[in-house]
Design a binder for these strands. Structure first.
Lengths: 340, 340
DNA sequence: TATCAAACTTGATACGTTTCATTTAGCGCC
DNA sequence: GGCGCTAAATGAAACGTATCAAGTTTGATA
């Protein structure tokens, strides 16, 4: 069975308190004693009991990570960033998929509260931060992930989605495109809404215009369907900007099936720059988000609050996206320009 | 601050023990009393302290999930299965990416031991199960994930990789292919080795032969490189079977770039049937593994052992893979048959 | 040699639960 | 009305640790 500090104390002929000090306040104990204790620890293969420790010290090296769906490559990468930062600090991450459902999110928040986690990283399923209020009141550090903090009492780490939308638009405009389609997702996703704002304002600024298309979900299947039905209605355009890469990949299938060539007939621009974007049959031009860094930064924020809540100042960290041009986009073709 | 059972007891005018009984042994307490206690619980918004509970009862509703890389779509899906099963049982999952490195795996196992998790689901980074010995000795339930249990003291959930390899081979053979290339991954991955065994024996049984190609890693980039160099050496074949879908997608890029058409010139068969396989430009024929079910089953195994270690019998669960034919494979073309 | 601060150690207490041996109440029956 | 039972509730002990006031040793100083 696992041995306890008491066993260590006995074997090293010191008191329980001294063993505790060796572990938590080594500067208070004489080197010779510390050495003896360490020997005993090795001998007994003692491993501290984290739950007991937390019960007493009210400090847990456990984080909760609440995301809509880890199967989304964007969040997978974010999670890796979170996890690496956590492990570096001796923390551990509880993975919670909310499926963007409030009910499931609530269930998880309750479990996390019961587990008395030290901090929570969350991409909320809904606008209101009310459900987080309880947690905050109980001294749990909360950091918003891929969301900007509206309030003062939480940290946040996000990517500038308006800028990302603008980058995508400007790329298309720079290539000479004037007939642009924006393939959006569900309207209630704040990130998507921001991308749209950035895109629209850039386009308007250039005196061009955009047609808006909406997919039901942020998936390839949904992108394919939306594009297909638009094509059947004889939509006329030369560039397609999508709310994420999955939509773009789906749309490309529909376009290809309709006999359109990419990028010769249509330029396609995605968003997220997931790994598959680069290695697709037609490498996808996309707006890269520093996903790993986002997760890493968010985790460091929440950990720093866990470690020292008193002297912690809430921060907003915002990353800049970046356009990665690949083969799915090219200058508008001569014929299209003339036709216009 | 969070209220404790003591507060609840006071408010409901009962003893501490009674509150505990309401929570854990409701059959022992009179309905009227239970009602009073429940009212107090709601009133105080009491949420049990899981760590304290575990300290006393030595029973944790926490699982550790140790996988090589959650960014691999295979494991992402497995993780979802694990998580859903866990949440259903009121458990929570700690995510651990070992990166297939022994050192990182060890670090995580130590942290999980310190957290006193109730169970561990692991796809081990190395053959030896020694590092798990300590855990088992301390009463932690261990279940092998995507690995078959060699020993008697752990459960395991896996997919029949030999059969999968055979399915892929038989599909190619049925389509008339006789010049087959097997694009393998690193030799030390047991799953891949098994697939190869199944493939080889099916091919031999049919009196055909296989050329073996090895990629350095199980990634698109690696698959592309391996295929490219093979093509430059003038390899002659009509069907390509890959150790996983990522390799297949990479290989397809190299093939396409070399002017070969799929499936007209070369039939390509992947393994895993990740989501992208179906929605790629050329939908990929692949061997489907019940990924979600695998994770779900493994989690249920480990949870059942956690709940009642005494009456638990270790089990091996093995799933059957399934061939999903799509457009990347077709009957060998007349010209190729003649040429032979 | 007596004194005192500094450097270590100790031992008791509390964290929020579960468990279990006891106690108390309620009730039918001879 | 006393007996034995069952059902319900209680109270104390324990889980493994951190903390901190109080104790002990050490070594330097006067």
């Amino acid at each position: 069975m696992g041995s306890s500090m008491k066993d260590v104390a006995t074997l090293a002929s010191v008191s329980l308190g001294t063993v505790s000090n060796v572990l938590n306040h080594p500067e208070l104990v004489a080197p010779a004693t510390a050495a003896r204790v360490h020997r005993a620890i090795r001998e007994l293969e003692f491993i501290p009991n984290a739950p007991a420790r937390q019960l007493r010290s009210r400090h847990a090296r456990v984080l909760g990570l609440v995301v809509p769906d880890i199967a989304n490559p964007f969040f997978t990468e974010v999670a890796r960033g979170v996890e690496d930062a956590a492990l570096d600090a001796g923390y551990v991450v509880i993975l919670c998929n909310s499926d963007a459902q409030a009910e499931r999110e609530d269930r998880y928040l309750a479990v996390l509260e019961s587990q008395r986690v030290g901090g929570i990283l969350i991409t909320p399923a809904r606008k209101s931060l009310k459900p987080l209020g309880r947690l905050l009141g109980n001294g749990v550090a909360v950091t918003l992930l891929d969301n900007d903090a509206p309030a003062q009492d939480v940290c946040s780490a996000s990517v500038d989605d308006r800028m990302g939308g603008a980058l995508a638009a400007e790329h298309a405009l720079d290539l000479g495109h004037r007939k642009i389609v924006w393939l959006a997702g569900p309207a209630d996703i704040p990130q998507v809404a921001d991308r749209e704002l950035g895109l629209m304002s850039a386009v308007r600024h250039a005196g061009a215009s955009v047609q808006r298309l909406a997919a039901k979900q942020m998936t390839t299947a949904s992108g394919e369907m939306a594009m297909e039905s638009a094509l059947s209605q004889g939509i006329d355009f030369t560039a397609l900007v999508c709310a994420n890469d999955l939509l773009a990949l789906g749309a490309i299938r529909a376009l290809t099936r309709a006999g359109l060539r990419i990028p010769d007939d249509i330029s396609v621009i995605g968003y997220d720059d997931i790994e598959f974007a680069a290695s697709a049959a037609i490498p996808l031009t996309s707006v890269r988000q520093p996903k790993y860094e986002l997760g890493h930064a968010a985790a460091k924020l929440v950990i720093s609050e866990c470690e020292d809540p008193a002297s912690h100042a809430h921060q907003r960290v915002q990353f800049q996206p970046q356009l990665v041009a690949r083969q799915s986009s090219s200058p508008v073709s001569a014929s299209d320009t003339l036709r216009r």
